Simulated scan of single mutants.
Amino acid sequence: MTEKVSHLIFDVESIADGDLISAVRYGGQGLDAQQAVATYQDELMELNGTTFVPYTFQIPISVVVAKVAPDFRLIDVVSLDDPNFRPHVITEHFWKGWEIYGKPQWVTFNGRSFDLPIMELAAFRYGISIGAWFKNDGFRSPRNRFSVNAHLDLQELLTNYGATRCNGGLNLISKLISKPGKMDITGDQVQQQYDDGKWKEISDYCRCDVLDTYFVFLRSMVMMGNLTLEKEIELVEEARQWIETRSTDSKAYADYLNAWKHWQNPWDVPKADTAADTKAGEPVTAEGNAEPDSAAS
């Protein structure tokens, strides 16, 4: 029997559609796809200080999904349409997989403003029906921004839906809990990687981002009261072993483990170190000493 999947943690890597950029922004100028992308990126750098092309001009070329059980255990990690990486097939598998598994909760990091919109637009582009995702069910509608049952965006969780900014992004949040974060590749290098034919390397990069997101998800569940810290530590170790058993056949997993650091649990210290000089029942100051007895002062 297929194991129940309650959460689908995913990440999207995409490239600019040069033909679309040429047609929309440089119609009649005779720019080919590569020239159009380069020209647009130059403009974006001058205007915004970044070469990031808006998602409306992009297509997904790698989507990696982690399947997670109701008890938050990692079941599997898959790269859609690997090794062909056909955008229309990736998109079809993405949406049909969500329905086949019973519409689990999507989990992303910044997926509300990028990953899900690009997959919706890809469904529009390729003529793929995703009626279940567009179901109108009031505040319970899957596309309702605050419907965390359908989609939990961890960046929105940590910033109170954009009330603050998550400076440092997934890389910083991952490193807060001693996970690898960004390693050899960053998102702004994906376009060049694709142009160089390094599709597998892009998928590996995406796979590592999904692993980071999984571990951030686990710690978020602790913060929200859905998981104990002790259980999270067990799940992290179980996942680390899962990665290790596959590292001989996957460079991505081997690299991820090489960058792995053990999270130092501040609560995991000998009792003698924290209580030797503290009488039972006495409050402890920030310096770790017992509060002075007011009657004796």
Rank of each mutant, 00 (worst) to 15 (best):
L8E: 08
Y253S: 05
R219V: 12
P70C: 13
T56P: 03
T51Y: 02
N171K: 03
G111T: 02
H93V: 03
S220F: 10
L218R: 01
L154I: 11
D76V: 09
P180V: 04
L121N: 08
C208G: 04
R143W: 01
M221A: 10
N265K: 04
F72T: 02
G28E: 07
A259T: 01
R73A: 12
E282G: 00
Q58S: 06
Y194H: 15
T213Q: 00
N136E: 12
E3T: 14
V63A: 07
V37H: 01
K261E: 14
T51P: 06
A23C: 08
N48L: 11
F134V: 05
D249Y: 10
N84I: 04
D273L: 09
L154M: 08
E244D: 10
L8H: 04
S141P: 06
F215C: 12
M221C: 15
S294Q: 09
L257T: 07
Q241F: 09
N149M: 07
Y40E: 01
N265P: 05
T91F: 02
V210L: 07
E230Q: 13
N289L: 07
T2M: 13
A66W: 05
K182I: 11
E237I: 05
N144L: 05
W133Y: 11
L154Q: 00
V77Q: 06
S203K: 00
E234G: 13
A123Y: 02
I118R: 01
S220T: 13
L44H: 01
G127E: 02
K261P: 04
D188N: 09
F52C: 12
A16R: 00
Y214H: 02
T50L: 03
S113G: 05
P270L: 15
S174M: 05
S6Y: 04
L47K: 15
K231E: 15
D71P: 11
A69T: 06
G162A: 02
K198D: 07
G281F: 13
N84A: 12
H88F: 13
S294H: 14
P270H: 12
Q241Y: 02
F139N: 11
L158W: 07
E3Y: 11
L235D: 04
I185R: 03
A69K: 09
V284F: 07
M183Y: 03
T50W: 02
D255F: 02
N265T: 08
D115S: 04
A123T: 04
Y205S: 04
D255E: 15
A16W: 00
I177N: 00
D81Y: 08
I100P: 02
P266W: 01
Q105H: 05
E238D: 14
A33C: 11
D82T: 03
P87T: 10
E156F: 15
V65I: 10
L121H: 10
V68S: 08
F217H: 15
V222M: 10
L211P: 01
T50A: 11
H151A: 04
Q264A: 09
E237L: 07
R145S: 12
V210H: 01
K103T: 10
L31F: 13
N136D: 15
Y40T: 03
D277N: 15
D293C: 14
Q191A: 12
K67G: 12
S14F: 00
D17Y: 01
A163N: 09
Q193D: 01
L158T: 12
I59D: 00
D82W: 08
G187W: 00
M45V: 14
A280Y: 12
V148K: 08
